[in-house]
């Protein structure tokens, strides 16, 4: 029965060193995670290089697709932050696309029989990656907030038009809510990717176990197979949605920073 045993659902998240590298005493080995970051980023760069190679009045298909993405994020930034959001557009665009492609490429099925190191890897299913991105966003929010508003940025924690007594309650709540932003931003993306891939692997594992059991149970294997198909479709939606949510929340936090003094 060992031949029919599916890999553990956790196996897909394991990080494997491909090439050992170090920077001083810091381990910066090229891992499967790093490889997939390079694959995703490389794919994005190749796509945009091809799309903008001959930027024309009448766009070809690649350019049209790139323009749809551009307009989508551009509208998002303008609607959420306003005109002063223009300078954050490249950041939000890069963030959205990096997460979107990382999420989507993680859904590429691994070809059977490949060694573990060559398995498809979802870089956004690791908390440290999503946490780094969310901390980057919050750092930009704080730095820009103080640069733009000076100490009036702290009005973010004390909205005007509230009875003075309420500030005793309100300010701590606002501070906690602000501090929880990077965590919720990071955990939302990480948990969605993590849970989605576990459920996918569980359904796939059921198929293997049931087919391996033989007889009537082999036929029953169809049910988790259909489940896996449905979850895959759902995961495509989640992949897009989580990239979008990350981008729009980044915009909302940046908007807070830009308009803190107006509150």
């Amino acid at each position: 029965m060992q031949t029919f045993r599916a890999a553990s659902p956790m196996e897909q998240f394991e990080i494997i060193n491909l090439v050992d590298l170090s920077l001083g005493s810091i381990d910066i080995s090229l891992t499967n995670s790093a490889l997939w970051m390079l694959i995703c980023t490389g794919a994005i760069i190749i796509f945009f290089a091809a799309a903008t190679r001959r930027a024309a009045i009448i766009p070809n298909r690649l350019q049209s697709t790139a323009e749809v993405l551009y307009e989508f994020v551009s509208d998002l930034v303008r609607d959420t932050i306003g005109t002063e959001g223009r300078k954050f557009f490249p950041y939000v665009f890069t963030l959205f696309l990096w997460i979107l492609i990382a999420n989507l490429f993680g859904l590429i099925p691994t070809l059977p029989g490949l060694p573990h190191a060559a398995h498809t890897f979802t870089t956004t299913s690791h908390l440290i990656v999503t946490l780094a991105l969310s901390m980057l966003t919050i750092t930009i929010v704080i730095v820009y907030g103080f640069w733009k508003n000076g100490f009036k940025f702290l009005k973010l924690f004390a909205p005007s038009g509230v009875p003075p007594l309420m500030y005793i309650l309100l300010v701590p709540i606002e501070v906690v809510s602000f501090l929880s932003r990077p965590l919720s931003l990071a955990i939302r993306l990480f948990a969605n990717m993590f849970a989605g891939h576990i459920i996918l692997k569980l359904f796939a594992g059921f198929v293997v176990s049931l087919v391996g059991a033989g007889g009537f149970l082999s036929v029953m294997g169809l049910l988790p197979f259909l489940g896996a198909v449905a979850v895959t479709a759902l995961e495509f939606l989640v992949a897009f949605l989580q990239a979008y949510v990350f981008a729009i929340l980044t915009c909302i936090y940046l908007s807070d920073a830009a308009h803190a003094a107006d509150h």
Binding site: I15, L23, I26, D27, I28, S29, L30, T31, S33, A34, M37, L38, C40, T41, I44, I45, F48, A49, A51, T52, A55, Q63, A66, E67, Y70, S74, F89, P90, Y91, F93, T94, L97, W98, T123, H126, I128, V129, A132, L133
Partner: peptide
């Protein structure tokens, strides 16, 4: 450390190319 390093490298390169080349071209 390795994940953070490669994230910084890939995200940084992508941002640099987007802000400097691709987005101005499309815009």
């Amino acid at each position: 450390p390795s994940q953070l390093f490669w994230l910084a490298v890939t995200f940084g390169i992508l941002y640099w190319l987007m802000a400097g080349r691709f987005l101005p071209a499309i815009g």
